[in-house]
Write a protein that binds this DNA or RNA. Structure first.
Lengths: 251, 251
DNA sequence: CAATTGCCTTGATGCAGATCAAAACATGGC
DNA sequence: GCCATGTTTTGATCTGCATCAAGGCAATTG
């Protein structure tokens, strides 16, 4: 099922500039020789928008970090109902050490480059290098918090609050990656189709479209094209999410 | 806010019989002297049904493992809407190393005994003892899977499927703890009020009550009292969840 | 034993969001 | 240019669950 296109074997560069693994993921505290070991088991894969990285149940013999582009993790019921359970932005980590097959459908929603590590040697390295495991634990705990934030969104928020929450999350992540403060005016690209947003929020695409139109009508957001969004007043957006203003909203 | 009743300092027993920490949690692979170190920083706390262990934002200077009883993790919005994000059964772990305050409301829904470890020494010990960290990573990954399973339930399932899913999850956990196979007839106690179930499933308590009545009417479940439930045919219950029969449904 | 309290059930009604349907826009291929 | 395909918007209608309301049942209390 999973059609993938490996593009190049990773070549060792000490600063690992092309790969965010060093910053958010496994090797932030690694020394030179550990980095060198990681480099040996590292390779890149790229995917086109819409391509499936792995279906739920597919054998997955690597773990990976997103270098550029966006991917989604989702679950599908037999009758086709789909729920996204994770959004993978650059620097996010995918794959579970100790599990041989993917538990979720992993789909590239834009052109995507991932930095992969073969699972077996990665696991062995984890055993030898405790801070890789520690880093992974931290990241997993962050993901768990994000998942629980989503549970609140899915279980208790109205359609309008859901959309506002999703836009706020993406805006925050986008601002973080771009190192812009998420206050004042802020422009970015919605990396998801209306349908993908619906699958994320437990809504239909029609409801998503209607609520986006409503937020536009109320000047909470400004659409520049279908996907490009400008947020004139970030605090006004946050008010629409139902969260208390200081709130966490991790992703 | 958090009123708690410490009952006894943990006394060291090599087999740690009274505490599931050894089996599911931190010390499964620990040697004698590491166990002894854990024992030194361990103490018990007990709570009555309905008592709050910690409010979101409260300082929490320990991590803990549930010994007996049930607790819930929940988030509350300003206007009172509540969403449970975790159900803590015996052997489950609470608390995040590296975070000083609780991110969730932790409430005992039955009489509860927890085996606590002071956070600072626990974290230090984690650094020295890699397999504690590894075990914690495994458990956190399991929790993440469970949270994602819940996202599907919350986002895409009908009220009837939600109730069936919750009953199935509790039945499975209960059977696992009691070491009974979760097939054929199976009797257990629902550890949650209708309201708590509603907060778990993103429903109202009235809907929960109606759907339980409906499942009873259709002979999927048999109520023996309000809380005692018998499941004559586990597979029939699973059919009501919307999952494919082999499915995971971790918690 | 009557009164109170907490939990649960059931009924009547309303509404947010789903569903069904159609059309407006893009974008790319030929 | 025209056609095909995919995405988005908007409208009309339907429905599952929320909401509002009342009453039942069991345990506890005075």
């Amino acid at each position: 099922m999973a059609r993938t296109i490996p593009i190049e074997a990773g070549s060792y560069t000490q600063d690992c500039d092309d790969c965010p693994i060093r910053h958010r993921a496994v090797c932030a505290r690694c020394e030179h020789d550990e980095l060198a070991q990681l480099e040996k088991i590292k390779y890149y894969r790229s995917f086109e928008a819409g391509q499936t990285v792995a279906w739920s149940g597919d054998r997955m013999d690597f773990v990976a970090s997103v270098v550029s582009g966006i991917a989604t993790l989702s679950q599908t019921m037999e009758d086709g109902r789909r729920q996204m359970v994770g959004l993978l932005l650059p620097s996010d980590f995918v794959g579970r050490p100790g599990r041989e097959s993917s538990a979720y459908d992993v789909v590239a929603t834009s052109d995507l480059v991932m930095c992969c590590f073969r699972k077996k040697p990665f696991e062995e390295m984890m055993l030898r290098t405790p801070h890789i495991g520690q880093r992974l634990l931290e990241m997993t705990l962050d993901e768990l918090d994000a998942a629980r934030e989503w549970m609140l969104i899915l279980g208790r928020k109205t359609a309008r609050e859901k959309i506002a929450s999703l836009i706020a999350i993406i805006a925050r992540r986008d601002a973080t990656l771009a190192l812009q403060p998420p206050t004042g005016g802020l422009t970015f690209e919605l990396p998801l189709t209306r349908e993908a947003m619906a699958d994320y929020l437990g809504l239909t695409l029609e409801t998503v479209s209607r609520q986006i139109s409503a937020l536009k009508r109320d000047n909470i957001i400004v659409l520049e094209g279908k996907r490009q969004i400008r947020i004139p007043d970030f605090d006004a957006l946050i008010e629409q999410t139902g969260d208390d203003s200081d709130g966490g909203l991790l992703v």
